[in-house]
Design a protein around this nucleic acid. Structure first.
Lengths: 192, 192
DNA sequence: GTTTAATGTAAGCAATCACTAACATAGAGG
DNA sequence: CCTCTATGTTAGTGATTGCTTACATTAAAC
């Protein structure tokens, strides 16, 4: 792993753990195993480092092309699959999400943009998937956007409680059982 | 409004806006219209001030005693009412929730405790409400805890997108319509 | 009218922060 | 062997921070 990468890795962990202001360049460099001055030779300022970290570890492309493959599947299976993948992606980018939660009001423009792009795409794609199934008379009539919000919201909150707030009671739940019951409730709630 | 209160008000706003580290005692005192030294005469340290703010503006008692009044209502009406109240409380305590999101990893013990107490109580009460209706054969068989997670999760994510992340598309949705559709999906998904 | 409690003003301290300058070292490529 | 590039070491700068000390002001209480 080259120096630049080591610094960005350490920065991701520390920004996630202590926030942008709380993470010092000394500690980032220390955790990366390099001298502080080396950090500044690679990144002209702490702010630039932050931006690069956020851009690099962005999860933008992470869920693209998932929906098309679901179109051949059964409704319930498709939603289960989607939920599983969604939770996986969130877990993979846990640190980044934590940073965004903490920093979203301090660095609104940059941070919020990445965050929104990720959720928006899923949101819209899922809504159009619902719309399609409504036209095929598989699903009952409901606002596809609100439906997408309900579905993603359940899982996002679950992820949040389990992995970001570290709630023991939630973490103890079997993940597959949760997905199963959420999807169960949702399909019963939306099928014709 | 007495001095102590003015300081705590300003502190709540600034902690919410800039985070614990980002909010300086100078600025808090300035916004409160008092001298910085006065802040330290009321609160021995910035940390003590933070704790007092969190404890004072906690929403612990805010939802107690809501559930009992729902027992006489129709299932759908009860859930709508609960959802509405839940969103109201979250909105009222927006600043506090923002602080907790940002600071939960930096001040785990104190902050997380308050946060958990609030959600846990709702969680457990709602779960036992579901269990009761299952015994009465009104609801189908499902895990009451997971069900409570699904229900509260939908609304928490909605609140989060609308009021904390300030997403325009979500904010544009009619709140009553969202509650309606969420409850609709959930009741269809859980009724016998 | 004197005392007392709450505030303000001014100055500053010790620590920490992001960031820089100057110079030494080491390894790879020619 | 020489050069170049990446890194380390050391020291330090100016700004900011939480917090303190010392003293002045004010207004209500007695």
């Amino acid at each position: 792993m080259d120096t630049r990468e080591k610094i960005m890795d350490a920065a991701l962990m520390l920004f996630s753990k202590k926030g942008y202001i709380g993470a010092t360049t000394r500690e980032i460099a220390g955790n990366a195993g390099v001298a502080e001055v080396t950090l500044f030779r690679h990144f002209s300022s702490k702010e630039k480092l932050f931006e690069e970290v956020i851009n690099t570890y962005s999860f933008l492309p992470a869920l693209k092309g998932l929906l098309p493959s679901l179109k051949n599947m059964d409704y319930t299976d498709a939603l289960s699959e989607l939920a599983g993948r969604f939770l996986e992606r969130l877990s993979e980018r846990k640190e980044l999400i934590r940073i965004m939660h903490a920093e979203i009001h301090i660095y609104p423009a940059k941070v919020r943009e990445i965050y929104h792009n990720f959720i928006d795409e899923l949101f819209r794609t899922l809504a159009s998937y619902f719309r399609e199934l409504q036209l095929k008379k598989v699903l009952r009539d409901f606002s596809p956007e609100i439906g997408a919000g309900a579905f993603l919201g359940m899982f996002f909150s679950y992820f949040n409680s389990k992995e970001l707030l570290l709630r023991k009671d939630i973490a103890a739940m079997d993940s597959a059982a949760v997905i199963n019951e959420f999807v169960n409730i949702f399909t019963r709630g939306t099928l014709k």
